[in-house]
Simulated scan of single mutants.
Amino acid sequence: MLTIAVTGATGAQGGATARALLAAGHRVRALTRNPGSPAADALRGLGADVRHADFDDPASLDAALAGADSLFAVTTPFGTDIATETRQGKALVDAAAAARLGHVVFTSAAHADRGTGVPHYESKYAIEQHLRAAGVPWTVIAPVAFMDNYASGWTLDGLRDGTFAWPMPTGCPLTLIPAADIGAFAALVLQRRDEFLGRRIDIASDELTPGAIAEALGVATGRPVAHQEVPLAYVRSRSEDLAAMFAYFATVGLDVDVAGLRRDYPEVGWHTFADWAAAQDWPALFDGASA
């Protein structure tokens, strides 16, 4: 049984990883800035040791990591900015090195090591480089686009009107993964440390075009859904970062060996997009979107 600290434990990737590790019988320290949140309470109910930790408070990181065997590390620029994500990610790596942890698994982004020019990929790659130089045993897992984003925000708003609005051509392939599969793969890596040390692995669960995604969403929601290509200029007017990401998706693309991952790591239980879409409570989501 390992004692594993999980950052972002109340978020999508960290939460999925914490749940997978708890289900496998490990001790999980769920690190969060808000130990009193409903998400933290839910993890506590599953058996997690919820601890306060703030990337900008080194003492809190030191206390949270003391005595742990391993760390699952996730960072985000959303809600702050790229510079903050990079600074906080490096601080977390430094704290892990100071605690002499036996393994750090950092979740980055697929292709972040390929000079994409996408700002929130570049920040993650800067943290990857810091991790490699820190002298702590490491693995980097790098997921593709999140299926979970299709059940929230402006995508969900469009689906209520029968439109899958997405800034890519209808026939352009896109690799996807749900948070649950990221968590399952991260848990696998943490439990099989020696097999994954020093490796960087892009991960994806399925590959579909926006047209096929719209069709699958139509089947899952029980209403007709058509893809509508959103102009990149529209995205750029709201976020240069996201516009750069979608431009990369549509030109270079996130090529990941989905079949190879399914063959080599079947225990992850990889979900197809249709699997994921069928599991969502669309009536409740639509009611929430219209509220």
Rank of each mutant, 00 (worst) to 15 (best):
E267M: 10
Q280G: 00
T76E: 10
S60T: 15
I82N: 15
L22P: 00
G117T: 06
I82D: 15
S290K: 08
G288L: 13
A16D: 02
Y234L: 07
T155V: 13
A244H: 01
S205E: 03
E215V: 04
E215Y: 04
A24E: 00
I141H: 00
Q13W: 00
E85M: 11
A98Q: 11
V144Q: 01
G253H: 01
L174S: 08
L197E: 07
A277Y: 06
F196L: 10
R27C: 08
A184M: 05
D81W: 08
R236L: 09
R33I: 08
D62L: 09
S108W: 07
V256S: 10
A91E: 11
R27T: 11
V118A: 13
G14K: 04
T251E: 12
D69L: 02
V230E: 09
W276L: 09
W270R: 05
T7L: 06
L21C: 07
Q129N: 11
A48N: 07
V189A: 13
G198R: 05
V140T: 15
F246R: 12
V258I: 14
D194V: 14
M147R: 03
A180F: 01
H120E: 13
G171E: 08
D62M: 12
L61C: 07
A95K: 14
L92W: 01
A180W: 01
V219A: 14
F106Q: 13
P143W: 05
L65K: 09
T272L: 09
A180I: 08
A99H: 12
A96T: 11
L174W: 02
N34R: 03
P143F: 07
Y265K: 03
Y121K: 09
A277P: 07
D69F: 04
L232C: 07
A12N: 10
A216C: 08
P178D: 10
L131T: 09
T76M: 08
